[in-house]
């Protein structure tokens, strides 16, 4: 209801004009089926979204149905980084390091308004969206999102995983941050998207 229909990711179409062979597409399907069905999350919970995430993992909503019951608290055995909650600037290098320590293939779910955009915390201490630090695959809106919302995001990620093709050579490229600024997105763009109301320097509201 209200959502645009998405192409069916469970069926792989054989496209003779493309370079992919029948065997490759079938193998893709098998590998992607295996990956999508056993995503191991690395929970990065910093705020109330983490409570909803715990509820999703508990028996009523039961993430185990998605093959995700094994929370990986070591990034080296994780597939999905689920960032649940606001990320202060002090944690920015930590989440960047955790992302870099995860082996490929890896995906990121940004759970909740604060992780996706800074949410209501438009202040000096909070990162305005973790996509300014690490690449994000799925954004789950909500403050915090209910477990159903997170599961919808997880299912979207599963469909994204199922659509991956081995013939795509750029799929597993690690993004290299810009060496001068250490950012993935160029600084002017970050300023543009994170400051809809003008330069922060002019945001003094105390009248002093």
């Amino acid at each position: 209801m209200g959502l645009a229909p998405r192409p069916d990711a469970t069926s792989v179409s054989f496209d003779p004009p493309s370079q992919e062979g029948w065997i490759t597409t079938r193998l893709d399907m098998l590998v992607n089926w295996g990956r999508a069905g056993s995503l191991w999350p690395m929970p990065f919970g910093t705020a109330c979204c983490a409570i909803e995430f715990m509820a999703s993992a508990a028996s009523r909503f039961d993430l185990a149905r998605f093959g995700m019951e094994r929370m990986s608290f070591s990034p080296r055995q994780a597939d999905v980084l689920i960032c649940a909650g606001r990320v202060p600037f002090k944690l920015a290098p930590v989440i960047r390091r955790i992302y870099q320590q995860m082996p490929q293939p890896k995906w990121v779910i940004s759970m909740g308004a604060c992780a996706s955009s800074g949410g209501m915390f438009d202040n000096y201490a909070v990162v305005q969206g973790i996509d300014t630090i690490i690449p994000v695959d799925v954004y789950v809106p909500g403050c915090p999102p209910r477990p159903e919302g997170l599961m919808y995001g997880i299912m979207m990620l599963q469909e994204k995983v199922k659509r991956e093709r081995m013939s795509d050579t750029t799929l597993r490229d690690e993004m290299e941050p810009d060496p001068s600024s250490n950012l993935y997105i160029r600084p002017s763009l970050i300023d543009e998207i994170s400051e809809p109301f003008g330069n922060s320097v002019h945001q003094t509201r105390s009248g002093l």
């Binding site: 600024s181 002017s188 400051e195 922060s200 320097v201 003094t204 002093l208």
Partner: peptide, 19 residues
């Protein structure tokens, strides 16, 4: 009280320094 709510530097600069 003279500290702006969003800090003194631009977002990109804050992020660069934090990283």
């Amino acid at each position: 009280k003279d500290f702006p709510l969003r800090g003194r530097f631009s977002r990109a600069e804050q992020l660069r320094q934090a990283l």
